Amino acid sequence: MADYSSLTVVQLKDLLTKRNLSVGGLKNELVQRLIKDDEESKGESEVSP
């Protein structure tokens, strides 16, 4: 898992935009949104054959 907390808000928003996720909120919220997306993506890849 990436260390999103070391990134700037601009970098976080860029990552969120690329994933089609909301870019609104405080830095901590942006980090949590990326972590949640990582976990959901990981779960999907494990279920797929």
Rank of each mutant, 00 (worst) to 15 (best):
R33Y: 00
I35C: 10
M1T: 08
V9C: 08
A2T: 15
M1F: 15
E39C: 12
V10D: 08
E46F: 01
L16S: 03
G43C: 10
V10Y: 08
R19E: 01
E39V: 11
S41G: 13
D38Q: 05
V23L: 12
Y4M: 03
S41T: 07
S45H: 14
L16R: 00
A2G: 14
K18C: 06
D38P: 01
D37T: 04
S22V: 07
Y4H: 02
R19H: 00
N28D: 07
Y4I: 06
S48Q: 08
Y4T: 00
Q32P: 04
D14P: 00
S22A: 12
T17S: 14
T17M: 14
L12C: 04
S48P: 11
N28L: 08
N28W: 12
E46I: 12
N20P: 01
V23R: 09
S5E: 13
S6I: 06
G24Q: 13
L15A: 08
I35S: 07
D38R: 05
P49R: 10
V31F: 02
N20L: 08
E29D: 14
S48K: 08
L12W: 00
L16C: 15
S41I: 13
E29M: 02
L21M: 05
R19N: 01
Q11Y: 04
K36F: 04
T8A: 04
Q32A: 14
R33D: 02
L7N: 03
E44Y: 10
S5I: 03
K13C: 07
L15D: 01
K36D: 10
Q32D: 05
V31K: 06
T8R: 04
S45A: 13
E39R: 14
E40N: 09
R19A: 03
L30Q: 06
V9T: 11
E39F: 10
Q11P: 01
S6K: 07
L26Q: 10
Q11H: 01
V47S: 14
D14W: 06
L26K: 11
L16I: 04
N20E: 10
D37V: 04
K27A: 06
G43T: 12
Y4F: 05
K36R: 12
G24P: 04
D37S: 14
L7T: 03
K27H: 06
S45G: 12
I35E: 08
K13E: 11
S48A: 06
K18W: 05
I35R: 10
S22I: 11
G24C: 13
T17N: 12
K18T: 15
A2D: 11
D14N: 15
E40S: 14
N28A: 13
S6G: 08
D3R: 09
L21T: 02
L30D: 04
S22L: 07
T17H: 09
L34I: 03
E46C: 05
T17K: 12
Q11R: 05
S5N: 15
L30G: 03
S6H: 08
M1L: 09
N20V: 03
S48T: 13
T8C: 05
L7W: 10
L15E: 09
L34N: 00
R33F: 00
V47W: 10
G43M: 12
M1C: 00
V10H: 15
Y4P: 00
V31P: 01
K42M: 11
K36T: 11
K27L: 01
Q11V: 05
Q32T: 11
L12G: 03
S22D: 14
T8Q: 05
P49T: 10
E46S: 10
R19P: 01
V10G: 14
E44C: 13
Q11D: 08
E46Y: 04
R19G: 02
G43S: 14
D14E: 14
V47L: 12
T8M: 04
V47P: 14
D38L: 03
D3W: 11
K42D: 05
K18G: 07
E29L: 04
S48N: 10
S6D: 14
V31G: 03
L16F: 00
S6W: 03
T17G: 10
E39T: 10
V23C: 12
G43E: 14
L12V: 05
L15G: 01
S41H: 15
K36S: 11
V9M: 13
G24A: 15
Q32H: 04
L26Y: 11
D38C: 04
L21K: 10
T8K: 03
G25C: 00
N20K: 05
D37Y: 14
K18Q: 13
L16P: 00
S6M: 09
I35Y: 05
S41V: 11
V9L: 13
M1N: 02
Q32W: 09
V10P: 15
L12D: 04
E40C: 15
A2W: 14
L16Y: 02
V23S: 11
R33K: 02
K36E: 14
L26T: 15
G24S: 13
S5W: 10
R33S: 03
M1V: 03
V9P: 09
D37C: 05
D38S: 05
R19M: 04
K13S: 06
D14V: 08
Q32G: 10
K27E: 05
N28V: 08
L30F: 03
Y4R: 01
L30T: 04
E39A: 13
E46M: 12
E29T: 09
D37N: 14
L34K: 02
L12K: 00
